[in-house]
Design a protein around this nucleic acid. Structure first.
Length: 612
RNA sequence: GCCGCUGUAGCUCAGUUGGUAGAGCGGCGCUUUCGUAAAGCGUAGGUCUCCGGUUCGAUUCCGGACAGCGGCUCCA
């Protein structure tokens, strides 16, 4: 089956869903019912009546009835004014809005419509759009299956019998046309495939995704927790989770310390004046956590980002062109008052830790700086085993951007040159730049093919000016530096959620909170265990950075070997060393990893671990 | 924030059509020293998320709060 057929099938199922709902609740008012990834949905307004998953069996039964009856999908056309009458007579106010938009503007796409006009009826006697350039619609098509009629562009399958395998998956609230000022409808989601096997496969995949959900693994592997007393969106990291955080943070820092970054430290609260000067207050004011001082009248806030703070370190001394670039680095936690309904796991939190850095440089230094940052990002994600793709986000011709056009043009060229010389897979997109400068966004693909936004490198032509940052050039003149923002991990919390799901909790050796566990078979080998511990204590490892404290434990409890293996495996500990009398006699260790088991001579153990 | 669903032991869950609850795992104790994913026996854990209301009586019904989950971009 090709994509078009599958699309028609899913779209037809959306209609059949609506038809079934209409049979059960004749008063239903319908919004839109498009095809989405793997399935379809239909937005439905049932007034006070609420559909829950408990109703799904009933709705699906009705749907199967419609499918088995085998009506044809019949297409017919109608002049738009007649269609508008149809919507009024059938009490379908949402369809009426769509028809009004088609008549007025020739489209129903919210993104193309003037929000204040959306859904508005044209005055009597006016036949077309108020905009001369707009091609308004004069005739619309309908599809009819059985006695269910719906405004629809199509296409559909020929007969309701031709829709393949489906399952209603969930019901969720969705605002009419995505606008929270509009009424909220009930969105009925379904998945659909050509065959039952494909549907089952898809449902199985959803189960697999659940097993690697970072919220589940975060609890099972004891990485983080949330407390009702501390609050939603404020995760607390356990010892194991903190090892992960610290290792990634120091690796990310090390990559930049290698080429001249210096660590700085800034406080977590500030006077609001800082954000009024930076311009963030106007844009992010409603996301700030406010702090009250009982000693002064200062209005304070928890910091939602770090760049304004870093500008003040730059501004603390006079700067020469010889000092540039000046590079500051800080892993630090920011606080943003996100909508409570959007919080969840480590993905969307109110306390987020950024491995943040800011370069202050001359315009001619942009390319060199970007080059080094891109090389760092590339190395980091190669170490983690994730494929990277970057988006070059440029300005478009609108006047929404600040800073000189010529500065933008050369900067965009330098960004691209750096991306090309780093051999990164990239695509360019106009109109995606920040108002203060062009940027490079990194997308990493995880083990089950999902793409996640991770690192970002952004140029900034605006904040240096707002803060009056300066340096003296070779001629003794005053110049404004350019700022380059960069976070390699992005937010550590979000990064960890991606990393946990990417690895399904089987962390690579270097970041595993517990790298090695020694499992004893009985107490007669305890002296030999001490010998092995001495080897581990002396070990120095080099990948991806040099470290000499291997994280291991000894399980010498009075339990069966089977139980010890089971537990160590449940904890996803990468290296299990099984020690019994035989190993002791042969001066060997039995090493159990995900790859299998092998015996290694004691004097080769260090080399073995160094290779991991 | 809004809509829907959910909240029972540390964890995973069962149960009570209104008469204050149970299993497995985990914990603790004893026995067992056992070579590749759970040894055996015993035992202690609960304000059934919290606050109100109805009731002789609420974990159960009603209301509210808090928290978790699925969504709120996909367009006739």
């Amino acid at each position: 089956m090709n994509d078009e057929q599958l699309h028609a099938m899913r779209h037809s199922l959306a209609h059949i869903t609506a038809a079934a709902v209409k049979r059960l609740w004749p008063e239903a008012k319908f919004g839109v019912g498009p095809v989405v990834d793997n399935g379809f949905y239909y937005d439905i307004d049932l007034g006070e009546t609420k559909i829950s998953e408990a109703n799904f069996a009933k709705i699906e039964k009705e749907m199967r009835g419609i499918i088995n009856y085998g009506d044809d999908f019949e297409r017919f056309e109608m002049p738009i004014d007649q269609a508008i009458e149809w919507a009024k007579e059938n009490n379908q106010p949402y369809k009426l809005e769509l028809l009004n938009d088609l008549k007025r503007e020739g489209t129903t796409l919210a993104s193309e419509l003037d929000a204040t006009m959306m859904g508005m009826e044209l005055p009597a006697g006016v036949s077309g759009s108020p905009h001369a350039s707009v091609q308004s619609v004069v005739e619309v098509s309908f599809y009819k299956n059985g006695n269910f009629v719906d405004l629809c562009r199509g296409p559909h399958v020929a007969n309701t019998k031709d829709v393949g395998a489906f399952k209603l998956l969930r019901v969720a609230g969705a605002y009419w046309r995505g606008n929270e000022k509009n009424p909220q409808m009930q969105r009925l989601y379904g998945v659909a495939f050509a065959t039952q096997e494909e549907l089952d496969q898809h449902l199985e995949m959803l189960e697999q995704a659940k097993l690697r959900d970072h919220r589940r693994l975060g609890k099972e592997l004891d990485i983080y927790t949330v407390s009702q007393l501390v609050g939603a969106g404020l995760p607390l990291f356990t010892p194991r989770g903190t090892i992960l955080r610290d290792l990634f943070s120091s690796y990310s820092n090390q990559l930049r310390l290698n080429f001249g970054f210096q660590k700085v430290w800034t406080p977590h609260i500030t006077k609001q004046d800082l954000y009024e000067t930076s311009g963030h207050w106007a844009k992010f004011g409603d996301e700030l956590f406010l702090v009250t001082s009982q000693e002064t009248d200062d209005k304070m806030a928890l910091k939602p980002m770090n760049c304004p703070h870093h500008t003040q370190i730059y501004a603390s001394r006079p700067r020469s062109y010889r000092d540039m670039p000046i590079r500051y680095l800080e892993t630090t936690t920011d606080y943003r008052d996100e909508k409570t309904g959007e919080l969840g796991g480590l993905n969307r939190v109110r306390s987020l830790t950024q491995d943040d850095s800011h370069v202050f440089c001359r315009p001619d230094q942009i390319e060199g700086e970007i080059n080094s940052l891109l090389a760092s990002a590339r190395e980091l994600y190669a170490t983690i085993g994730m494929n990277l793709r970057v988006r070059l986000s440029y300005r478009d011709s609108s006047d929404a951007y600040l800073g000189e056009q010529s500065l933008w043009d050369t900067a965009q060229e330098q960004l691209k040159a750096a991306v090309v010389s780093n051999e990164l897979d990239y695509f360019e997109q106009e109109g995606e730049a920040a108002f203060y400068g062009p940027k490079i966004d990194f997308m990493a693909t995880d083990a089950i093919g999902r793409e996640h936004q991770v690192a970002t490198v952004q140029l900034d032509f605006v904040q240096p000016g707002r803060f009056g940052l300066q340096y003296t050039d070779a001629e003794g003149g005053v110049q404004t530096p350019v700022m380059i923002h960069c976070a390699l991990l992005g937010s550590i919390e979000r990064f960890l959620s991606v990393f946990i799901e990417h690895t399904a909790g089987w962390f690579p050796f270097w970041v595993a909170p517990e790298q090695v566990r020694i499992l004893t078979i009985n107490d007669t080998v305890l002296d030999y265990v001490d010998t092995i511990k001495a080897v581990l204590d002396d070990l120095t490892l080099m990948k991806p950075v040099k470290y000499n404290e291997i994280r291991y434990s000894v399980d010498d409890r009075n339990e069966s070997l089977g139980k010890k293996i089971r537990e160590a495996t449940t904890w996803k500990i990468p290296v299990q060393l099984i020690i019994g009398q035989q190993d002791k006699d042969d001066q060997e260790v039995s090493i159990r990893t995900q790859a299998g088991e092998e015996k290694v001579k004691l004097d080769e153990l260090a080399t073995y671990l160094q290779k991991l």
